[in-house]
Amino acid sequence: MSTDRRTHLADTAISVLADSGVRGLTHRAVDRAADLPPGTTSAYFRTRQALLTALVRRLVALDQAELEEMSARLPVRDADELAAGIAALVRARLSGDGRRRSLARYACAVESTRHPELREILVPRENRARQAVCDFLAAHGVAEPRERTITLLTCVDGLVFDRLVNGGDVRDEEIAGLVAAALR
């Protein structure tokens, strides 16, 4: 079985999930969206759970790659730079492919409440971006920087969710306020 085909199917499944929701995620829907013969997806992922697991693994891999790339480009020397980096991430997650992945990620998060194996995959991972936030907070004398990092990033995640559901743009002042709160 081709790894490239599996990746293509997982990427297509992300799009199907973002466009059609959990109920619309079927092997046939992925076959149609990928423009592949009927039965192709089920040949690679025999069950719906296998397809969903592959989709979640791919989401996590794409998210980790995005965070690693962003952290390499953005130094974090002061609160303004941290806020700018977080704002760039939020905007990336609210537009284009990032929006589709965010919609799929939240659908998978809800689904993971019924499927603990998905929850294990979705657990936030350590990465260079998360560590940069933690290091920044520690360098600025924040007590319990790991816990404060989790709180800050959870608030950012909630902001992304709110904008996906309710619409609207993210204002720089909102992100700066979250960073300022984390530093208190």
Rank of each mutant, 00 (worst) to 15 (best):
S102C: 00
D162L: 11
L67M: 00
L137T: 05
T149N: 11
S95E: 12
A182S: 07
V56H: 10
A10V: 07
A84S: 07
S15Q: 09
A43D: 08
T12P: 12
S112Y: 02
R5H: 03
V165L: 14
N166M: 06
A18Y: 13
M1S: 13
E111A: 12
I121G: 00
D78Q: 14
I14H: 04
R93Y: 02
R148D: 00
P116G: 07
T149W: 11
P75H: 08
V156I: 09
A61C: 14
A107N: 05
T26E: 10
A43Q: 11
C134F: 05
Y106G: 00
A84Q: 06
G141Q: 12
L153A: 05
G141R: 14
D80A: 15
S42W: 14
S15L: 10
E126L: 08
L51D: 05
L137R: 03
L67D: 00
I121D: 03
P116C: 05
L67A: 02
Q131T: 10
M70S: 12
V142L: 01
A88H: 00
P124W: 03
V76Y: 00
R57K: 14
D162G: 02
S71H: 03
S112N: 04
R73L: 10
A83M: 08
S20Q: 14
Q49N: 09
R32I: 13
G96P: 10
R100D: 15
C134P: 00
D162Y: 11
L36M: 14
A65F: 02
I150V: 12
T7L: 15
V156P: 01
R148E: 01
R6A: 13
L89T: 04
V16D: 01
